[in-house]
Design a protein around this nucleic acid. Sequence first.
DNA 1: AGGTCATCCTGGAAGC
DNA 2: TGCTTCCAGGATGACC
Length: 266
Amino acid sequence: MPELPDVEVFRRQIERHALHRRITAVRAPDRRMLEGTSESALRRALVGRSLVATRRHGKYLFAATSDHGGWLMLHFGMTGAIHIVPAGVLAPENPKLRLDFEDGGRFVFTDPRTFGRIAWVRDPAEYVADKGLGPDLYADGVDAKTFTERVRQRKGTIKSVLMDQSVLAGLGNVYTDEVLFQAGLDPHARANELRPETLATLYRETRRVLRRAVAANADPDRMGHEYLLPQRHAGGECPRCGRPLVWESMGGRTAYYCAKDQTRRM
DNA sequence: AGGTCATCCTGGAAGC
DNA sequence: TGCTTCCAGGATGACC
């Protein structure tokens, strides 16, 4: 379920392996994935050009083309992924987007469940504004003051507030659970009732979890024993106390947490 | 305004 | 073993 760390890893893969390679062919065979564009429009925009820069805002990834032609936007839904395939190597089947490079390599975007989206946008900032996304949670995206002010003015559960992309962009269901675990917070805590020091802790832990996740290549199993994610499954145990994790549906999403180590509600 | 639920989708796991 | 059912979840929208 690509969240901010996963998308940041994808972005770095593009930066490292897909820039400045001339595109000779474009395939986008599944129209359900296309948001306000078409295969032929993507072809016109991309063929003969190359990708030259990337940006990410929350879970949204952008890649600029040469000639200032515009930006390719990719959203990964829950099963979206990119694969940059060298010449002569078999590419994944059923691509939702495939760019063929002049050198024989390929850029492939797969998404078996089709929850992702592909768009062509003039300007990422404009797109982000139109979508109503809050500030990005990574790197220079947000400071402690902005974070606390935005969270504090919401009355919902902290779980739902952290997952709300219009408040802060980047956390999904999985990493929200990790952040709440690290902060020792009950997912049912009310965002507007959190004390200033709790908000400060939450900010610090959010940033730390995201940095750690990116460093671990967004692979939960590489996070380390003190993290919830490797245990985030039926039968999983709290990394601190060893008790079975609680497994609860909150607004149609599954929240995993430790009933002993996550009791703080303010 | 916030919570809940349904919808989209399909691979994989669980159940029988 | 093989079939059926369930579940996961990001974004969006309906409804209360």
